[in-house]
Design a protein around this nucleic acid. Structure first.
Lengths: 210, 210
DNA sequence: TTTTTTCTGTTGCAAAAGCAACAAATTATT
DNA sequence: AATAATTTGTTGCTTTTGCAACAGAAAAAA
């Protein structure tokens, strides 16, 4: 199920066919959108990477989700609560497709090809999202930093079909993704190395167990 | 968006219209299904409640997800890894609808009404799931037990539109849902009470802040 | 109703994780 | 090429969390 290709083709073909669809560019640290209930906006990240960031009432900033090419986001996926603000922030130069919908399941006009195809693609897009979210939850529910790291490495390893791989994002981002303190995570990585479970040079990891 | 009604009607109407759909009953602690890649099974919980449980290689048991009436589950939503086993276990008497699909997006026969309707309902079903998963992730990414509890209470409070509510599940289950040690959570609840943030009698909570 | 099981509430202690702070290395920017 | 910014790696200390264990309350089963 290679969904990326479908989306790419979809976007290139229908980008200008619907007036409710807009493409915009962003540079580093710019706010792409914030989540406001009933704004009815669906966004597709065409290029670059971005973070879904939460600011709570104390001003604490947490990265809740990380989006990369062809990821889909927007407040449809979220129960927007009043207790914190949700922003999507560009991590570098980004291209984003915005789509304002009245009813996400319905076409805007009888002959609007964009909506027809979007409706067809949507279940797959969302299913893909569910899989990622479940994956993350499985990691987040692990009790210790060690278990989270090992669980994450196992996933990467089985995805790439190799015991040796480069991490797809920085260690700082990994700590955010696993929702643990970075220095504590570094300490645990060192212990995993000392205990002979992994080898690590820079962000290249080799699993030595099993 | 009251999705439950749609599913209820859908199930009642088409339950017997497709030979690829089976309904089964389960009693407490029975295994409803386990997740096996490419089995292509979609399950709808018609009645009762069930848990998605992970057993890792050390035999540790963790509740990853909790399903209640009209929740949808199955390995479509999951990257099934080889490092742990995933079971869905009944928490009491359960009724489950099993649907084996070849291609989840396609009908099994030209005139199969069940599949036609399922295909229509699926995006909504899944979207509903995404919202729940995002909600849970937002809680799981909070740093402390206190933040998790308060975040959870805020969500319940804004859903029920009241500062005073009964918890929808037991404290033991809540600890599992937030993925924290139960006794540590109880301690934190006591502290929240002592600090005057909440009132608590049994599983009834009243928020005293804001 | 009685018995059994599950859930709640509590505590002491040990282990793990978070926080703060800094230097070195790496990567971007000008 | 020089400077700035970000990421990595490390450590000491403090706080939080988990673990184990137990008694009482509540709920379910016999």
């Amino acid at each position: 199920m290679n969904i990326s290709f479908d989306i790419k083709q979809f976007v290139e073909t229908f980008e200008n066919s619907c007036h409710k669809v807009k493409k915009k560019s962003f540079s580093k640290n710019e706010v792409i959108t914030n989540y406001i209930e009933k704004r009815n906006q669906l966004c597709i990240l065409l290029d670059g990477s971005a973070d879904l960031v939460r600011y709570d009432l104390n001003g604490n900033r947490t990265i809740i989700d990380h989006f990369s090419k062809y990821d889909v986001f927007g407040e449809v996926f979220y129960i927007v609560s009043t207790n914190n603000e949700l922003f999507v922030e560009a991590k570098g130069k980004c291209e984003v497709l915005f789509y304002i919908y009245d009813d996400i399941k319905k076409k805007c006009k009888a002959n609007c090809k964009f909506h027809e195809t979007l409706t067809e693609l949507l279940p797959e897009l969302i299913l893909n999202k569910v899989t990622n979210l479940n994956m993350r939850i499985e990691l987040l529910t692990k009790r210790s930093i060690r278990d989270k790291l090992v669980g994450y490495f196992n996933l990467i390893s089985s995805m790439y079909l190799t015991k040796s791989f480069s991490l797809p994002f920085s260690l700082t981002d990994l700590a955010d993704y696993l929702s643990v303190d970075r220095s504590a995570m570094m300490r645990e990585l060192k212990l995993l190395k000392d205990d002979g479970f992994i080898e690590k040079t820079g962000n290249k990891i080799t699993l030595l167990y099993k």
